[in-house]
Design a protein around this nucleic acid. Structure first.
Length: 828
RNA sequence: GCGAGGAUGGCGGAAUUGGCAGACGCGCUAGACUUAGGAUCUAGUGCCUUUUGGUGUGGGGGUUCGAGUCCCCCUCCUCGCACCA
């Protein structure tokens, strides 16, 4: 008999699958569809274990649901624009396009060596004109809908990457990609108006039942919706009115000063020509040098300065000083706040520092507070004091009452504010999809007409001297005639954030050949939404929120009928080794290539799926891999060493009542394995326990062969066991199962077989072991026939010698009998 | 500080409805086969104890005939958020 040799059989079957277009997918309205998708990779060069893990999970689902009779869409592609390609160009003098293409070719080969069942016909590559044409088309669509706009704003600049970044792409004040600290710059940039979708992005999280709670919470936090009121404070001796947003209208009588953000336009106007002008403006300049994200940090010391101006509290007519402070941000709310030091800790700290008054307007229900003696703000609800007509009322009630009071007097109105900012999408980089816009001296900003797309990214560019985008200096790219007046125009030289490209690729997979539109409505209607999306938690906000936004925009544009792209989301855990994330610097890297080379893809996949549930972090263990290899060899021998026997037997129909107890045990195991694997894969995604059930089946079959007399083997039973074993293992380890299936004489691929069913009756054992407890402690066990009555059980239990001796001299006060499980006697 | 998740043998992890804690795998121990084995097979393996038995799911309390599972308090770990008015 030949040994298990994955190096030989794996490439063999991969070729056969490919030659026969095995995984090609077509719309079939007669069948239920299942769209399983793994986040497409950036073609960085080589696959790592994180990739192997996410693809293994996706491939199990794809293969499982295919066998279950679903029409499965399982595509793959490349998130191919991005900075690393450009950096490689500068460092190694290789064109980003070539670098990217070579990486794709290499990684695709690696993916194929893992036996992944992709429909490669649908492959998308975001840096190819036939894809980015449609990214540009979608940009124009957003522009047309008023959702894309250009604006000067203080934005995050990464000096290392030489480009601006969206807020989501700045983590703890540093660039998410290179770790450089970002700095603020006032630049004119393109934005997508994602804030207009804030409420829908927030509200629809509730219908995403298949999403992990933590991802939804992260998105909720990011959107940061707060309810409150806008209040107008007239400036004394001026026609100006300062508008503030507050979530605590109940504290309005406690306002003792106002704070404007340094960028607030009133600051300059109010101090102009006054004695305080110089001092205030130099303070403002100083504050603006610090990035907004730095300023927004709780650790930053609160700094401020008095403008010299006052405004009037509309509720009680009090005059209150107007300050400028670093802790107020222009981009949130109205860029101005009312300060209530008695009831807001930030205001309290600031007030103490600058000797501003503290005025108590809410007192705790059970004690009195004195403003002058407070050492921190009282932020809890309580009883209103010093608040005119509202005195004595519950502060919680007054939130609504005072808001209504404001509205009655036109002093303000109810309002909602978000933490979410618009998505900054322009990048000062070369390797991205050009923004399809032309600037014309007479017509202004003119979108490139749809029929002129794509705006080709020129490939003939230099990467020698600077890291600056080569588009900026490329005259033949920049110079263009205006599509409206025909006069001289200039192309936009910024490209789009790569997250724009990845915000709609899952739609293109459904309709990859569409030539008139980014995708055909009919095809998208059939395939979408994605039934199961799988990827890393690092995209909890970034990619996943952008994609949700795009999906809603496209719905509004009438291009799709779905409002959410991903019905279910699996955030897979990371791969660790020796307690640390795999990293070159730590020297603990194991690559998919090594594993395939040494053990084969089937072993690697099996280990990755067996070692931990998919959403948990996985500890790499070389010994564990060995164990899986050992298991597959065990499977191999089980089938191969008995191939003659198995091939001889042509039918597996089994008469259950003719089985002896040893055979019945095997039969029960065969059926329970099918049940457990089916449920673990389909309902719980617990591949680790599914695999352990398969291992138990193998152990049971070996046990049977060991116990049964030679020549007494019940052939149809053993055949059923072997067949089911191969079928159950097929989604996990597709090559070995294909080989064994063919060894058993089957002509059609194992991956085209139906998923096995099970005999519900067979799950019940003829005999069950019942535990006998006294006072909840196990004292004995007894085997009885299944479904024995309570009376019989009790009688049997009491008759056991061990139990009888324990019962001696005791009185039974209670008898608990759980059929097929236990008897518990409570004694005194 | 707020929010979410978690803590089970030497290790990775099971226990789906409150009903035998530790499935499955790794490791380890003993044995078989063998020139040899880091191949394979068999048996064992939570801890303490001499069998008997006792004890055991981060710690403390509670509910229950019965708790890893439910309730209360505490400790620690991981992740996310945190000057957002």
């Amino acid at each position: 008999m030949s040994d298990y040799n994955p190096k030989e059989i794996e490439p063999k079957w991969q070729r056969i699958w490919e030659d026969n277009n095995f995984y090609q997918t077509r719309i079939d309205p007669g069948r239920k569809k299942y769209y399983v998708l793994e986040m497409f990779p950036y073609p960085s060069g080589k696959l790592h274990m994180g990739h192997m893990r996410v693809y293994s999970i996706g491939d199990v689902l794809a293969r499982f649901f295919r066998m279950k009779g679903f029409n499965v869409l399982h595509p793959m592609g490349w998130d191919a624009f991005g900075l690393p390609a450009e950096n490689a160009a500068i460092q190694h003098k290789v064109h980003p396009a070539r670098w990217t293409d070579e990486n794709i070719a290499f990684m695709k080969k690696q993916q194929d060596s893992l036996g992944l069942s992709y429909d490669w016909e649908r492959e998308v590559t975001t840096c190819y004109p036939d894809y980015y044409k449609w990214t540009q088309w979608l940009f124009l669509k957003l522009y047309e809908m008023g959702l894309a706009y250009k604006e000067k704003a203080a934005v995050n600049w990464c000096s290392q990457c030489e480009t601006v970044l969206a807020n989501e792409q700045v983590i703890d004040n540093v660039c998410w990609r290179c770790g450089t600290r970002v700095s603020p710059q006032d630049l004119e940039q393109w934005f997508f108006a994602i804030t207009r979708y804030a409420d829908r992005l927030l509200g629809d999280l509730d219908i995403l039942e298949g999403w992990p709670e933590r991802v939804k919470i992260m998105q909720r936090n990011w959107i940061g919706r707060s309810e409150g009121a806008q209040v107008n404070f007239p400036v004394k001796d001026s026609s100006k009115v300062i508008n503030v947003f507050t979530t605590r209208p109940d504290t309005l009588y406690g306002v003792t000063y106002m704070v404007l953000a340094p960028e607030h336009p009133y600051v300059k106007e109010m101090v102009e020509g006054t004695s305080r002008e110089k001092e205030v403006l130099s303070f403002v300049e100083e504050m603006r040098r610090v990035s907004e994200i730095d300023r927004a940090s709780a650790e930053t010391e609160k700094l401020g300065i008095f403008t010299g101006a006052y405004c009037i509290n509309p509720l009680n007519g009090e005059e209150i000083p107007i300050m400028v402070g670093n802790y107020v941000l222009m981009s949130y709310g109205t860029g101005a706040i009312m300060a209530v030091p008695a009831h807001d800790q930030r205001d309290f700290i600031f007030a103490k520092k600058y000797n501003l008054p503290v005025k108590l307007v809410i007192k705790p229900p059970d004690q009195d507070l004195i403003s002058e003696e407070m050492i921190e703000a009282y932020e809890e609800p309580g009883i209103m004091v010093n608040s005119g007509p509202f005195d004595g009322m519950d502060s919680r009630e007054c939130i609504g009452k005072i808001t209504a009071y404001l509205e009655e007097n036109s002093w303000g109105r109810q309002d909602v504010s978000y933490r979410l900012r618009d998505w900054l999408v322009s990048r000062q980089r070369y390797w991205g999809a050009p923004i399809p816009v032309i600037y014309c001296d007479s017509c202004g900003t003119v979108p490139v007409p749809y029929e002129d797309l794509p705006v080709h990214l020129p490939l003939e560019v230099e990467f020698e001297s600077s890291r600056q985008s080569s588009l900026k200096t490329l005259e033949e790219f920049k110079r263009v005639s205006c599509p409206q007046c025909g006069g001289e125009g200039q192309r936009e030289t910024d490209t789009m954030d790569t997250f724009v490209c990845s915000s709609w690729y899952f739609l293109r997979y459904a309709s990859p050949f569409s030539e008139d539109l980014p995708f055909e409505r009919e095809e998208v209607d059939y395939w979408l939404p994605v039934d199961q999306y799988i990827g890393g938690i690092e995209h909890a906000i970034l990619h996943l929120m952008y994609s949700r936004f795009f999906t809603k925009v496209l719905y509004d544009a009438g291009l799709t009928g779905i409002t959410e792209p991903f019905s279910r989301l699996l955030a897979q855990g990371m791969v660790y080794k020796d307690g640390a994330k795999m990293a070159k610097s730590k020297g603990n890297v194991v690559t998919p290539d090594e594993i395939v080379e040494k053990y084969g893809a089937d072993t690697g996949r099996l280990f990755i799926l067996f070692a931990a549930p998919p959403e948990k972090d996985l500890d790499w263990s070389d010994k564990g891999v060995e164990g899986c290899y050992r298991f597959l060899r065990r499977v191999w021998r089980l089938v191969n060493d008995n191939r003659d026997l198995l091939r001889k037997s042509h039918q597996e129909s089994i008469k259950v009542n003719e089985l002896n107890s040893l055979e019945r045990e095997v039969y029960q195991m065969i059926n329970s394995a099918v049940k457990r694997v089916s449920e673990d894969v389909q309902e719980r995604f617990n591949f680790n326990t599914a695999i352990s059930a398969i291992m138990e089946l193998v152990n049971s079959l070996y046990h049977y062969l060991d116990k049964v007399e030679a020549g007494e083997i019940k052939e149809n039973l053993f055949l059923k066991g072997a067949n089911n074993l191969i079928l159950l293992l097929a989604p996990f380890s597709p090559h070995i199962t294909e080989e064994l299936w063919s060894i058993l004489g089957h002509e059609e691929s194992v991956h085209l077989q139906s998923w096995p069913g099970y005999d519900q009756e067979a799950l019940k054992a003829a005999d069950v072991e019942v535990v006998v407890q006294i006072n909840g402690k196990v004292r004995d066990k007894v085997v009885v026939s299944a479904d024995s009555s309570k009376e019989e059980l009790l009688k049997t239990a009491k008759s056991l010698p061990k139990i009888q001796s324990q019962l001696e001299g005791k009185e039974i006060v209670k008898e608990i009998i759980v059929p097929n499980k236990l008897v518990n006697l409570v004694v005194k």
